[in-house]
Design a binder for these strands. Sequence first.
DNA 1: ACGCTAGGATAGCATGCGCTAAGTTGCGGT
DNA 2: ACCGCAACTTAGCGCATGCTATCCTAGCGT
Lengths: 212, 212
Amino acid sequence: MNQPDNPPVKSRLPADQRRKAIVDAAVQLFAQNGFRGTTTRQIAHAVGVTEPVLYMHFETKRDLYSAMIESISSGTPLASCDPICHHTGDDAVFTSIASGILRWHVEDPTRIRLLLFSALEGHELSDLFYQGHIVPFMKTLAAYIERRIEDGAFRRVDAYNAARAFCGMIAQFGQSLTVFRTPCPEDSRKEVVHQMVAIFLNGMRKPEDTRE
Amino acid sequence: MNQPDNPPVKSRLPADQRRKAIVDAAVQLFAQNGFRGTTTRQIAHAVGVTEPVLYMHFETKRDLYSAMIESISSGTPLASCDPICHHTGDDAVFTSIASGILRWHVEDPTRIRLLLFSALEGHELSDLFYQGHIVPFMKTLAAYIERRIEDGAFRRVDAYNAARAFCGMIAQFGQSLTVFRTPCPEDSRKEVVHQMVAIFLNGMRKPEDTRE
DNA sequence: ACGCTAGGATAGCATGCGCTAAGTTGCGGT
DNA sequence: ACCGCAACTTAGCGCATGCTATCCTAGCGT
């Protein structure tokens, strides 16, 4: 009578696996509906168990949220420092960074949605992610820009502001694609990235006749 | 007994004034907590009346939300086309636009919060605002950039992508200030805007020796 | 073969939600 | 002065929520 409708599923899982399954389901639902918009029943149903099972692993709904935050936060970083390390020319570096940021957004919109939801709802992912991922990367990028300024390749501007400008225009584009669902075909995106990188690099490079 | 605690307030308002008061309170609460995170009781309490009063003016909570959307949507636009019309040099134009966008964000974070919440929660403000404000402005800005390209002042790039890049970096900065609460002193903001405008304009201007 | 325990289901509590029926009162018009 | 109505309140319905007390059972070790 209480037979599940999909019969050949292993009904009982060891604690750690079940816990992981719960967190995974929670990620999707919290990203889609936010903390307040997601019910514990929804999560339980998505996992294929009943509510009390959630409470065997997490004391409260918020504890589950926090655990999910941690899971997300330890996942794919927004931007990788790799392109900076394997430096093969500014164009390659910044194109690679931009592609990475954009991929982070569109490949799985779950992440940006979760980040925005938690920032708006005042949860801790905001800070955890911002301080843990964004700021460190921005500092690395700023350091790279600083180096290029010292090289004489870039104009003398505040490196962190320049990094902010670059990441900002890419991130905003990624956000408009995922959160605001602006339509934009795949290859057109590459073109946008290409042009943004071009504008930025042109803006950073030293003009022939300096004029203030 | 049911006397309100602030005595010299005219307790009864004509329908249109009460309606406006409700919408105003709803704006603040929906911006702070989202649609699902805001209760009709909260709104009623903020207005200083009881719940049924809300339902004298709006059939459902969602209707109130829609009315509030309309109210916000007919308010201050994200960006004004004025600086483009009163064109007094690229630097002045883009600095003015950037300041306007940033002001729209920080002057009253209610707006950006509402926009993001409604996009995430899948309400209609997203499209209403995006199609009604952002897209038209972007097109105007793109047209201006196009003109400057024809003038020979800017490099040949897709004008809309350039507009996206410019607005994106400013908007993302505004978002980080308001939504993610990144600390940044007032005069430091001006500096950020200044540098972003400089990077963008430098990137757009034709280099002396064109090289592809 | 079978007991023990970890993994799970049933049922339900207390609270708060959106919303409403019905009654009450301040206030402008005559 | 007082009537009528618009503005507002009281009380509460039905339902969903977060969470829990209680019981059940699959499946492993022996």
